[in-house]
Design a protein around this nucleic acid. Structure first.
Length: 455
RNA sequence: GGCGACGUAGCCAAGGGGCCAAAGGCGAGGGUCUGCAAAAUCCUUAUUCGUGGGUUCAAAUCCCACCGUCGCCUCCA
């Protein structure tokens, strides 16, 4: 029995799917105008891992993660670089997949992008207009918040409080400051599409509603994203979706906590971002996954070299256990049903069934690590190894190691050889050269020093 | 100003009425192993859960107040 903390109710609830054994899930993906940062990676890794856990538990999961490729920042960046928005977003979607692949994230069932759904977006807005949930002014179309009675229910705010707040932008075209844009009239230097309201482009919130309705239907099981999306993004999505279909849109809302750097949220606008690309280079994918999964997904966490070194050390403890098991029993693998495996599998599921409690899951893993290191029972050791590989379906580590290229080792050997040459120990230096040669490294002593290449 | 979350050992972090004299990781201290070292390994490391009240037979866990930290209310995972 899986339980999930649902932002909508604020409670942990038993997970029941709309269709038995099937889960339809939608995760808000990145806006593609630069490389993703570790905050983006958290949502991607956590929900991918959760998705795979659901699969492990026997569900068939339709997983959708979008790319926002129409957006002010994309347009601005593209204009600044003198390229089209499309070229810019194409580039960063490709970069996203490189990072996701390095992080061990499984591709989604669907990776929709906004620009492929503009027709559907227009139809969706027309529906809203027909149902009197939207109105147009000067080529813009706005959602009428007052027409949707439960507006604010997801983010637990009430519209009156928000109107009283001073931070809502004043826009004369809106009937109500809370109303939000569904369609924006065209401006110079912006991509535009034909619509019943003239040339223009979609607003931000509309895309997820539309793409999910096309790909998953009017109702689906899980909608996930960062806590910073709860308001206004998800609130608005919910309003327009339910206004249009008249049905409950999402059963469970899951939101991951933010990553901060020195007590301040990591965000593109603050500029204190740490690229996934950079983090991968410095710490490697496995340490990054430990870092992201060893804290509960809903808690805010801090990104720092201390935390990453810690994660790296923790991961190393796991691989050390695998190494020790292999040393003791070779490559034996136990897959038959037995009490020990059942017991520990139950511990793992108990942890993850409870709102995907990955810290607890790691606790289970490290208890087994300890067992593996202190035990000499071959049977047990092979059972532990089998469990680790079984669980890796959702933990997603790359146990194949070789995170470092061999280049720097060659470099060091070349240096050692040159040390030997310097003291005229040619027996030693030639020995090193011969060894390298056998390994496929060609040494070239030139006037400006020693060079080498892979042969 | 409004709404929400959080405060557990040196650090990170589970637990969310009795099974808790509180899981796990990092670090630290000691032992084993080792030519020396490193690595590895074993053991130890919170009578206590921000502070003060309250509810209860029983509270880290529920309620109230206070202090502190963070997030959202504007684009953001």
């Amino acid at each position: 029995m899986i339980r999930i903390t649902n932002t909508f109710t604020g409670k942990k609830e038993v997970f029941k799917t709309l269709t038995p054994n099937r889960v339809k899930m939608y995760v808000c993906g990145p806006t593609v105008y630069n490389l993703i940062h570790v905050g983006n990676a958290r949502a991607a890794v956590v929900f991918d891992s959760f998705r795979r856990y659901l699969e492990y538990r026997g569900y068939s999961v339709t997983y959708t993660q979008n790319f926002t490729d129409i957006d002010d920042k994309i347009i601005n960046t593209a204009n600044k670089d003198g390229i089209s928005s499309k070229a810019l977003s194409d580039r960063y979607i490709a970069e996203y997949f490189k990072d996701a692949c390095m992080l061990g994230i499984k591709p989604a069932t669907f990776h929709p992008r906004t620009t492929d759904f503009v027709k559907d977006i227009i139809n969706f807005i027309v529906d809203l207009e027909e149902k009197n949930f939207a109105y147009s002014k000067n080529g813009d179309v706005y959602f009428d918040v007052s027409a949707f009675k439960s507006y604010g229910a997801l983010s637990h705010r009430n519209p009156a409080d928000m109107r009283a707040g001073s931070r809502i932008e004043i826009n004369e075209l809106k009937d109500d400051p809370l109303d939000f844009t569904l369609w924006k009239a065209a401006k110079p230097d912006e991509p535009e599409w034909k619509s019943p309201w003239g040339e223009g482009r979609p607003g931000w919130h509309i895309e997820c509603s539309v793409m999910s309705s096309v790909l998953l239907g009017d109702s689906f099981d899980i909608h996930a994203g960062g806590t910073d999306l709860i308001f206004p993004h998800h609130e608005n999505e919910r309003a327009q979706s339910e206004a249009r279909s008249g049905k409950k849109w999402v059963s469970y809302w899951m939101h991951n906590g933010m990553i901060s750097i020195k007590e301040e949220k990591m965000s593109k606008s603050i500029g204190n971002i740490f690229n996934v690309r950079e983090a991968l280079k410095v710490y490697g994918p496995n340490a990054l996954r430990v870092y992201l999964l060893s804290k509960h997904y809903r808690s805010p966490i801090e990104f720092s070299s201390e935390r990453m070194e810690e994660a790296k050390a923790a991961y190393s403890r796991i691989t050390n256990a695998l190494y020790e098991i292999e040393r003791k029993i070779g490559n034996e693998f136990k897959v038959k049903k037995d009490a020990f495996t059942e017991e520990w599998r139950a511990h793992m599921m108990e942890a993850l069934d409870d709102d995907f409690n990955t810290p607890q899951a790691f606790s289970v893993i490290f208890e087994l690590v300890k067992k593996a290191l202190s035990s000499d029972k071959k049977e047990e050791l092979s059972q532990i190894k089998a469990l680790f590989f079984e669980w890796n379906y959702f933990l997603g580590f790359d146990f194949s190691k070789t995170e470092k290229s061999a280049d720097e080792f060659v470099e060091q050997l070349v240096n050692l050889r040159n040390d030997a040459r310097a003291r005229k120990d040619y027996a030693q230096s030639d020995k090193i050269r011969d060894t390298l040669q056998k390994l496929g490294v060609e040494i070239r002593d030139l006037s400006d020093g020693t060079h080498w290449r892979w042969n």
